[in-house]
């Protein structure tokens, strides 16, 4: 064995692990203490025994200015955004990629560029006019407005296009000889073949959707549409100027916001890494 690992290598990796994981561990543990306890004793790496109360409060207490939103509601909205975005992305980009790869038609190259130019400009640089468009279309405070505009990027299309190109031509030729049309070929051959790819894209896109911050913040002013990320902004605003801030609730909210995407990435690690390193972003 040539590259034998030394204890020093392990030391670096252990320090790296601590650097990455310790803040999360501290957040989990501290969230189980009471706010007063945290205020006087600081952060903690030992469980505090008040976890159930804190998480129950965060999940069920009517918060916000109008009392319309609970942690559970925000979690559900985040879930709708994450899943809606991932599914929408897969459907839209798969169909577009199918058209681009498997059909001979005029302006195909032009359409390719129309779609792929979107890779060049992130949402953040066109955020203000995007907001105006949404308000003109009366899509503020709707799930459509929350999800659909985020789909306007070609990452997924690119990914499927790349995959379809790698599918052997013989499959289509054989399917044609058997009399399969475009729909039958898509449903019976391509979709089953793309299953792993779809799973990888789903993981990446779910995390991306769940973690959106700026867009939901602008799109939703009504509290019943708030996502967890929006709730974090809220809790910080309440925090300013309070004597003993609800540290425990803030930590609990952070844990609720990070747990689902982290679990998805850890559990589906293999697909996730494959999807990420093959398709970028």
């Amino acid at each position: 064995m040539m590259n034998r690992a030394t204890p020093f290598d392990h030391l670096i990796l252990i320090l790296a692990t601590l650097f990455m994981v310790l803040p999360v561990a501290v957040a989990i543990m501290t969230s189980t203490h009471t706010a007063v306890d945290i205020h006087s004793n600081g952060l903690s790496l030992a469980p505090g025994g008040h976890g159930v109360e804190t998480y129950t409060t965060v999940l069920t207490k009517q918060g916000g200015f109008t009392g319309q939103v609970t942690g559970l509601r925000m979690m559900m909205n985040s879930l709708i955004l994450g899943i809606g975005f991932a599914v929408g992305k897969i459907v839209l980009s798969m169909l577009a990629a199918y058209a681009l790869v498997y059909f001979r038609f005029r302006f195909a190259t032009a359409m390719f560029w129309v779609i792929f130019t979107t890779l060049l400009l992130p949402l953040e640089v066109r955020i203000m006019p995007s907001y105006q468009v949404m308000s003109d279309l009366k899509l503020l405070n709707t799930y459509t407005g929350l999800i659909v505009p985020l789909l306007a990027s070609a990452t997924g299309t690119f990914y499927f296009r790349q995959f379809f190109k790698s599918v052997p031509d013989e499959l289509l030729e054989a399917a044609r000889i058997d009399g399969a049309g475009p729909f039958k070929f898509l449903i019976d051959v391509l979709i089953p073949l793309s299953r792993t790819m779809m799973a990888a894209i789903f993981v990446i896109m779910f995390v991306y959707g769940w973690n959106q911050y700026l867009w939901p913040m602008l799109m939703t002013t009504e509290e019943r549409f708030f996502t967890l990320m929006r709730g974090i902004k809220q809790i910080l605003q309440v925090w300013i100027g309070s004597q003993i801030p609800d540290y425990n609730e803030a930590f609990a909210l952070a844990i609720l916001a990070l747990a689902p995407p982290v679990l998805v990435v850890v559990v589906f690690q293999r697909w996730f890494i494959k999807g990420l390193t093959e398709s970028d972003k």
Binding site: M20, V21, V24, V207, W210, N211, Q212, Y213, M229, I232, K233, A254, A257, L258, P261, V262, V264, V265, V266, Q269, I273
Partner: peptide
């Protein structure tokens, strides 16, 4: 890699 999934605001 797990921290990859944590959102910037969190």
């Amino acid at each position: 890699i797990s921290v990859y999934a944590i959102a910037p605001p969190v």
